[in-house]
C-alpha cells in the first residue's frame, strides 16, 4: 500500500502528545504543516516532498567554498544560511596566506555542523575522522527531504547501493551525495539515486531499486549470451566478469540515452 499524502492544515491526530516533525498543535489537535507523506511511528510525522535544508548541529553536510576571509572559509551548504569554517577547525595549523591553497573557492568538502546559534550562524568543522576536502568522485544533488530515503531504514538502502555498485557513497544531510568508484558504476548509481528521488513516496522502494540495479546486470548476461562470437565465453569465467560487466553496463547505459 502506498503512503498517505497529507497537505498543510490536515488533521492528523486528536491527541497532542502525538505531534512529531512537520506538524503543529492547535487547540489540542495535531495538524500537518507540510505537504508530504504521513509517517506514523511513536509520533505522527510528516515527511515533506520538498523544502530547504535547515542546518542543525551534528549534521554531516557537503559544502562548497564561496568566500574566504582572513580567518574563515564560507561554505554554501544549500541552506538559506552560509556555513562558516574557522581556520582553527581545520585539522592542522593554517596561515592566512595558505588558506586558498588548501580550500579554494569552488572546492567542496565533507563537513560537520559544529553549532547553529539562535540567529542561524552556522559553524562548521573539519576536525573529525572522515571529514575532508573532496578531490575525486562526483557530487550529486537531491532534495534534502529525500535524504532519509537514500539512507533507508537503519542504512539499508545506502548499504545495498554500496554493495551492488561497489562505489563509495557519502550522503550529506543537506541533500548532496558524494560518490566515488568506476565511471560506469557511478552512472548507474546516479540513475538509481534519481529513481529513488522520483519514487520515494511509494512503498517497497529498496526492493525496486535492488531490482533496478540487478536487472541491468542480468540484461548484460542475456545480451552477451544471445550475441554470437567466442568472447561470450569469457562471461562464464569468474576471474574477468566484473570489469566486463561494467563495460557492458556502460555501453547499455549510453545506448539507452
Amino acid at each position: 500500500m502506498d503512503r498517505k499524502i497529507v497537505i498543510p492544515g490536515e488533521l492528523l491526530s486528536e491527541n497532542e502528545q502525538n505531534a512529531g516533525l512537520g506538524t503543529y498543535v492547535e487547540e489540542g489537535k495535531v495538524y500537518s504543516s507540510l505537504y508530504g507523506v504521513l509517517n506514523i511511528k511513536n509520533k505522527v510525522d510528516v515527511i515533506p516532498f520538498s523544502g530547504k535544508y535547515i542546518p542543525r548541529a551534528k549534521d554531516y553536510v557537503i559544502g562548497t567554498v564561496v568566500d574566504i576571509t582572513s580567518s574563515n572559509w564560507f561554505f554554501d551548504v544549500r541552506a538559506p544560511y552560509t556555513g562558516m569554517l574557522h581556520v582553527s577547525e581545520y585539522p592542522k595549523r593554517v596561515e592566512s596566506s595558505q588558506m586558498s591553497d588548501l580550500l579554494d573557492i569552488g572546492d567542496s568538502a565533507i563537513l560537520r555542523v559544529k553549532d547553529v546559534d539562535q540567529s542561524m550562524k552556522v559553524e562548521l568543522t573539519l576536525r573529525e575522522r572522515g571529514l575532508k576536502r573532496i578531490k575525486i568522485g562526483r557530487v550529486i544533488e537531491i532534495p534534502p527531504s529525500k535524504v532519509p530515503r537514500i539512507i533507508g531504514h537503519g542504512g539499508s538502502m545506502v548499504s545495498m547501493l554500496k554493495k551492488e555498485t561497489k562505489c563509495e557513497i557519502f550522503v550529506g544531510q543537506n541533500g548532496r551525495i558524494w560518490i566515488n568508484g568506476p565511471e560506469e558504476n557511478l552512472d548507474q548509481l546516479t540513475d538509481a539515486i534519481r529513481l529513488i528521488v522520483k519514487e520515494s513516496h511509494i512503498h517497497g522502494l529498496t526492493d525496486r531499486i535492488y531490482e533496478f540495479l540487478t536487472d541491468k546486470k542480468s540484461n548484460v548476461d542475456v545480451d552477451s549470451y544471445a550475441s554470437p562470437g567466442d568472447d561470450i565465453k569469457f562471461q562464464e569465467d569468474d576471474e574477468i566478469p566484473d570489469d566486463i560487466h561494467r563495460k557492458i553496463d556502460a555501453l547499455l547505459d549510453s545506448s539507452e540515452d
Partner: peptide
C-alpha cells in the same frame, strides 16, 4: 507554497 515545502498552518 505547499509545493515548495514551506510549513503552513493550512492553505
Amino acid at each position: 507554497l505547499a509545493d515548495a515545502g514551506v510549513p503552513m498552518k493550512g492553505l
